Structures are given as C-alpha cells and as structure tokens.
Simulated scan of single mutants.
Amino acid sequence: MLIPFENMPDNARVWIYQSDKKLTDADKSHIEGLGRSFCEGWAAHGAPLKCSFRIFHDQFLIITVDESHNMASGCSIDASVHFVKQLESDLQINFFDRTKVAFVLNEEVFLEPLSQLKSKVDEGTIQEDTLTFNNLVSVKGELASAWMVPAKSTWLGRYFN
C-alpha cells in the first residue's frame, strides 16, 4: 500500500539504491510509474506492506517500509530487489555497483571509484568537510541526520590524518 514518502514514520526501514549515472526525466518517470504499481502490490506473506519510495538528487532510489504495520519478510525483500533489477534492465543503469562512493561537490552529486579516493583526497578534490553519502542508513529518520555526512566522519577519515 503506497503511502506518501513524507508520511512514513522516522522508524520506517529504508533501502538506498545508488544509480551509476544521473537519472534523466524519462528514467524518473519510468521509476515513478513502476514504483507506484510495485508499492500498491507489495506484500509479505499476503499481508500488504505500508511502503513508499522517492528519488533523491537524480541519483538515488530510496524504498521504505513501515514495519510497525507489517514486517518485510525475506520473500518480500527479494521482491523489492527484483523490482530494482527490473528497473536496471528497463533503463540500462546499475543500482548495485558498490565500487563507487557518492559525494556532493558544488551542489552536484558525483561518483568516485573506491580505487581513486585516496588520490582525490591527496589532491584536495575530496576534503574533510566534503559531504558523502552513507547508503547504509537503516531507517527514514537517519536520512536527515546520517545519510549525508562529512567525509572525515566516515571510514574516509583515515585519509585525512
């Protein structure tokens, strides 16, 4: 059952999918259409899930479930992964590439391969206060406080010593 994203509680579980490229208006429209259909039918053992999704920064798809209503099960989580894989196939993008870290620089999101991070820090492209995305946040309330954080407060902090 689709709920407006802003109406989801702060303790709603989230999954963050980072695209390997900036999403176009056509991509976002496609995701919106399929996302609405997916959420309307998403269930765990036949019980509807109170869920939502939103695209952020033209780069991230965030899916959320209010588990105080019904808990997401292994099969329902598999269904959400299948939904995201379908989007990948439809749009020729990758939401599962974990070899790149997203940063905000000059109010734009950019992706940097893990192998290049140390050199980007050394040359000053990535600085201690450069915002980076922590895609491991687990609940909606953390999106405001722990999703975009200064590089120095992540595992990248070791490069600034």
Rank of each mutant, 00 (worst) to 15 (best):
M1S: 15
N7S: 12
P9M: 03
P9K: 01
P9F: 02
N11F: 10
Y17V: 02
Y17F: 15
S19E: 01
D20S: 12
T24R: 12
K28T: 02
I31L: 12
E32V: 14
G33P: 08
L34P: 00
R36G: 07
F38H: 06
C39H: 07
G41W: 00
W42L: 14
G46T: 10
P48R: 03
P48N: 02
L49T: 06
L49F: 05
S52A: 13
H57D: 15
H57F: 04
Q59C: 12
F60T: 04
F60K: 02
L61Y: 06
L61A: 01
I62E: 08
V65D: 01
D66R: 01
D66L: 02
E67V: 06
H69F: 13
N70D: 06
M71A: 13
M71N: 10
M71G: 00
A72L: 04
S73Y: 05
G74W: 03
G74Q: 08
C75S: 06
C75I: 04
S76C: 07
S76A: 11
I77E: 11
D78T: 04
A79T: 09
A79Y: 00
V81W: 04
H82A: 15
F83P: 03
K85T: 04
S89R: 14
S89H: 14
D90L: 05
F95G: 01
F95K: 05
F95C: 01
F96C: 03
D97C: 04
T99F: 01
K100G: 06
A102V: 14
A102M: 12
F103N: 05
F103P: 05
N106T: 11
E107I: 09
V109Q: 09
F110M: 14
F110K: 12
P113F: 09
L114K: 11
S115A: 15
L117Y: 02
K118P: 00
K118W: 00
S119R: 10
K120Q: 09
G124D: 08
E128F: 01
D129M: 07
T130H: 11
T130C: 10
L131N: 07
N134G: 04
N134P: 08
L136W: 13
L136S: 15
V137K: 00
V139R: 15
V139G: 02
G141N: 04
E142W: 03
A144C: 05
A146P: 08
A146R: 15
W147H: 03
P150S: 07
A151K: 09
K152Y: 07
T154K: 07
W155V: 10
W155T: 04
W155G: 02
L156K: 07
R158Y: 07
Y159T: 09
Y159K: 08
F160R: 03
N161E: 13
